[in-house]
Design a protein around this nucleic acid. Sequence first.
DNA 1: TTGTAAGCGTTATCAA
DNA 2: TTGATAACGCTTACAA
Lengths: 340, 340
Amino acid sequence: MPAPARGAATLHDVAREAGVSLATASRVLNGSTRKVADSYRVRVEAAAEILGYTANLSAQATARGTSAVVALVVADVADPGFGQLAAGVTRAAEETGLVVTVAVTGRDPAREVRVVRALRGQRPRGLILAASRAEGEDAAALRPELDALAQIGGRVVVLGRGASGLRSVSTDDRGGASALGEELARLGYRDAVVVAADEGIHTFDDRVAGFTAGFARHGGRVAEVRRAGISRDAGHAAATALLGEGLAPGTVVVGVRDVVAIGVMAALREAGRQVGADVAVAGFDDIPLARDVAPGLTTVRVPLEELGARAVRAVADAEWVAGPTLPVEVVVRGSTPPRA
Amino acid sequence: MPAPARGAATLHDVAREAGVSLATASRVLNGSTRKVADSYRVRVEAAAEILGYTANLSAQATARGTSAVVALVVADVADPGFGQLAAGVTRAAEETGLVVTVAVTGRDPAREVRVVRALRGQRPRGLILAASRAEGEDAAALRPELDALAQIGGRVVVLGRGASGLRSVSTDDRGGASALGEELARLGYRDAVVVAADEGIHTFDDRVAGFTAGFARHGGRVAEVRRAGISRDAGHAAATALLGEGLAPGTVVVGVRDVVAIGVMAALREAGRQVGADVAVAGFDDIPLARDVAPGLTTVRVPLEELGARAVRAVADAEWVAGPTLPVEVVVRGSTPPRA
DNA sequence: TTGTAAGCGTTATCAA
DNA sequence: TTGATAACGCTTACAA
């Protein structure tokens, strides 16, 4: 009769049940390169099976001095874009045998600093940071925490063009934005308003700059870059304000993220304006929803899941060389019809 | 000069730096009820500050015999509904000092079993299980894993009407669905098709049953319950099939989740049908997007974030009594206009 | 109030 | 190949 074990079965229990030493049991059960005689191996495996043994990851982590945790830090898990990213991270992490822990900043830089500091307690193998400010005061406050984490062996992976000394994975934000600008100009648009976050987040800064350049290349002009934020509500609020100030028909409003653009669309509709022929809208990311709103949202498809998966690889790989920036693609839908 | 410390500073380092014993340092830094003289307390805190000490959670977990982890198991983090849930879980967990780990099943029951088994290695304080089958073969296969986890002290919290012996938090799916049915009948609808998952998930079964009953109460009739799935694509596919078989104008298609309903809307649009006056659509959850599609989606608002937060409380509270089922509310939007 | 020391469940070194 | 045994970083009786 296997001991009914009050708590979980320990390696000790397994060893006793199998009649071998702790060391041998450990070698059999947990990936050791060392050889164990088959007869022993079989007995240990049988004992583990009978007792329902599962290695205690915390104990393993303290003994090994390294954990199997990769911490993901996002602004908001409920946000579609961050959700897709998280999906890619969890998938790749599972394949790599890593456990994903999630922390949320709520788009608050101060909170981000606290979160990263707290995360250090997990002694994570790596930390994946999304949509973080890479420049300015906030970045300066965050950097020491990131370095502290890196110093104890955690690999910090930044999404987007990273900062020096940190691993990063990125998409071609500038190129994609530029292509979007060119495409919209080609469709006949000449006036655009961009709704963006405050400066400091490379990804979004690149989108703004790229779009402005591409649009200008074919005669378009960005009348204004509205600093609102990167949430659906930020887009909604920005559009409402814009509407109040008078938004000329034929203008295209570009959100730096699809959720922002969708907020813009909602505000336009609420104001009785028509999305498309009247005021056009475009975004970035191509979240699944972009094709489900009506009209469909013109956007730049960004492989967010793949980005998340690559970030995990950047954490897991000992030798890591910055891969090529992930390609993006302009997807034109009904929200930006050709201007007659 | 504080030792530059190769790895992270340990409690040992702090104690040495402060000139106190390990025990004292531990008492000061990590919530112990025991008293420590102020002079010592100050020195320890200063030392910790200087060395940038952060307790190693893995070591704490093995020493204490209990971890601060709550594991969240969802079908898909990128799905809006699960994302909202995850947001509630992470928020509440942070407030409670718990770390959230996320695991994804991809709506595959076999994978769900494997995931739960693997999760046991974390010796989680609790496990939150969403949209899981509570009946049928799959549930039978999962149950032993859940019990094994519970036996080693992990609290299993099931979302929706739970199974016996497990904690659970739920919303009033049946009542809300019934109210939706009544409301749609009141609006003049008489024929409905419900797009749902296979039977076995209480939440969705209750929605189907509740809607059918409420709709019938005022003269409506559910022509068919289409078993398709609970994703956007499942809704899309189901609607496409339905369309092929001929979908009479004036019918209302009800998805058991908003994402399903949104898939249905997309299919209708692609087929050139008009959502609303022609074929009406309704869903469940009231994900943020439900108001951003056009026309807006009629739905039953479910407080998913709050549900997630309650689940965390169900994990954290030693004494726990099943609270009241969370109330839901019918939200009528343009996708179900009054029938003339 | 403080410190000593024995765990916690693993891993890994070093003899045998 | 196997098995003692000393870590790993922390908590917690139990003494002092």
